[in-house]
Write a protein that binds this DNA or RNA. Structure first.
Lengths: 341, 341
DNA sequence: GTGTTTTATGGTAGCGCTGTCATTATTCTT
DNA sequence: AAGAATAATGACAGCGCTACCATAAAACAC
């Protein structure tokens, strides 16, 4: 009767007790061997491992997490998967944790703090060992949980602000500013901006503001500005630049919020016979490989997405505890001069 | 004494018992309300929900999974994150499950069945509700676990083979074959292939074989073939085409295993002043947006990656049980005529 | 009005593992 | 050689939840 429930559940799936019985050891010893924890005699280890292999034992992590009040899960909340930036970050995270026991659970927030909050709470139900999210801007409730939780927190991409524990990324404001200065130095004077309408893309916004402030410091300002109602795709960039040039034929350089859109801009120029760089400069952001493989390599800023993900995950692995003090890691950025501006 | 352990663990984190006490109900009733399961009087539900909100109760999924021998986790194993194809699939999966209780745990296999096996086993420790992986080719051990596990299985991308439960994808062999037929119809006769050396990319291989067999059926064969030692990037495609043309200047069309490489090929042609389509046809695979945004839209095959992910996840959500019989869903593909071949 | 089903709730016993505290054998000090 | 430290193992309770069975009240059948 007592076994009935078990019979219907696990139906032969071996447990620690089964392994212990076969190896002639206590459960706790088997547990220690499996977790590679505490002092174990070589002979014991060998015997247990043989029993594990023979039974094909797979530890039950739900039971383990419950007993130890900690899991091996790492919550990763990303704004989007359409934008290659975030798969790159995820790849970096994955590279760092691939040889560890950590397993990433991922959520996509669509750049919406409320969705982020909802997903975060649902993921906290697993008592994750760490939480990685993008940006420094979260809802008050999310922020409270991040600060009080029994897990480490890394906030990626952005470092202009006050992190919970660890921030890894770059200053997007500064990147925008440097973009402006670079283009002014190149001799451009009539600046256009071809953006998108992703309201919650705080980082694109910060770059935009940095750009404007560089122009201002140089005695200039944007002479034209448009935003694509769709997302920030290549097609959107292409169509938007066409419109922008109809409305403002006098601009001599256009800044796009990302490389995808900038490449759309290039394609429009090729199509319309506009001489890139001389007649119209084009500048992107991200430093995608494909932009650098073009006949005219795109002028842009290299954001180190893979490095950001990898660094953050490595930092989180360093300790089991929450860090005593906040850390900000600036991975920086590189201006890629390219041939389009 | 008995409380000591608890004190050090959860330190105030409210449990079901706390909610039950506050609401004046039994734990099981609270559990039912939280899970939205079984008949509950409206008044009870309201009272419980108020208590949940007041305490900020977050259910402990580890305990829940242990008790019910089932989790809300969905294991997703992808070959790579560098290739945009898989983030697209993941996006589709995410779209399908975003309003459900499922949470994706992802692993990256690097196209290696042994890594896939290792990650699969480590993820099975969570008793996932479903497993999604790419391709139909797995190690015998992995296959055994997939067949015997208490979860549903979907194998994505490929349908040329024998699935465990559900396969969602397209026939890559057929796609390769159609590519060959299409190009022959277009008048091309001297075929070159510019591939990569990802040994485990079974699908690229299947397309290659389909292509060869179409050529054979048309009384033709590849006159030139090279493989880039690196991955399948745009840069690789650009450099490879240059080399291929040096060795075989007579070819009149080149097929690439993906759009990224094909775009590299286009960039080489633009750079070298080769008239695309007339002098040299170029054909890719995937139908990426960026290829269609180019001045000469890339001739390619649209693989429906997002749809594959979404369909698979939806199918998995349909039932809690393993399906009685195997299902193969062909999402098909579209030839995009483009302007490059 | 009696029997039967349905609705709403609760008691209890685990799920499979690990933290805590003991216990015994072994090695090291001086 | 006696005491102290270390290495190796085990007993046992309990983590927070849900499956299972039971019960009581309400609704329904005839």
């Amino acid at each position: 009767m007592a076994r009935k429930r078990n019979a219907n559940r696990t139906a032969g799936t071996p447990t620690l007790a089964d392994v212990a019985r076969l190896a002639g050891m206590s459960e706790i010893t088997v547990s220690r061997v499996v977790r590679n924890q505490g002092p174990i005699a070589d002979a014991t280890r060998t015997r247990v491992q043989a029993a594990v292999a023979q039974l094909g034992y797979i530890p039950n992590r739900a039971a383990g997490s419950l007993a130890s009040a900690a899991s091996t899960l790492m919550t990763v909340l990303l704004p989007s998967l359409s934008n290659i930036v975030f798969p790159d970050v995820l790849r970096g995270i994955h590279t760092a944790i691939t040889e560890t026991a950590f397993q990433p659970v991922i959520g996509v927030t669509d750049y919406d703090p409320l969705i982020e909050e909802r997903i975060l709470l649902s993921f906290l139900a697993w008592q994750p060992a760490a939480v990685i999210l993008a940006g420094l801007h979260h809802t008050p409730i999310a922020r409270k949980h991040l600060e009080q939780g029994r897990f480490r927190v890394a906030e990626l991409m952005d470092i202009d602000g006050d992190p919970v524990d660890i921030a890894v990324g770059m200053s997007h404001r500064q990147a925008g500013y440097e973009t402006g200065r670079h283009l002014i130095k190149r001799g451009y004077r009539k600046f256009g901006y071809a953006g998108h309408m992703l309201v919650h893309d705080d980082r694109a916004k910060a770059r935009y503001e940095g750009l404007c402030s560089a122009l201002q410091d140089g005695g200039l300002s944007l002479v034209a500005e448009m935003r694509s109602p769709g997302g920030g795709s290549t097609i959107a960039g292409r169509e938007l630049l066409e419109k922008l040039l109809v409305a403002h034929p006098d601009i001599d350089v256009v800044i796009f919020p990302n490389d995808d859109m900038a490449m759309g801009g290039i394609f429009h120029c090729i199509h319309a016979g506009i001489v890139i760089k001389e007649r119209l400069g084009i500048f992107g952001f991200n430093g995608l490989d494909i932009g650098q493989a073009m006949p005219l390599p795109l002028s842009t800023i290299l954001s180190k997405r893979f490095l950001i993900g990898k660094t953050a995950a490595e930092k989180l692995l360093e300790s089991r505890e929450r860090p005593a003090e906040k850390t900000i890691i600036n991975t920086g950025f590189d201006i890629i001069e390219g041939a389009t501006a």
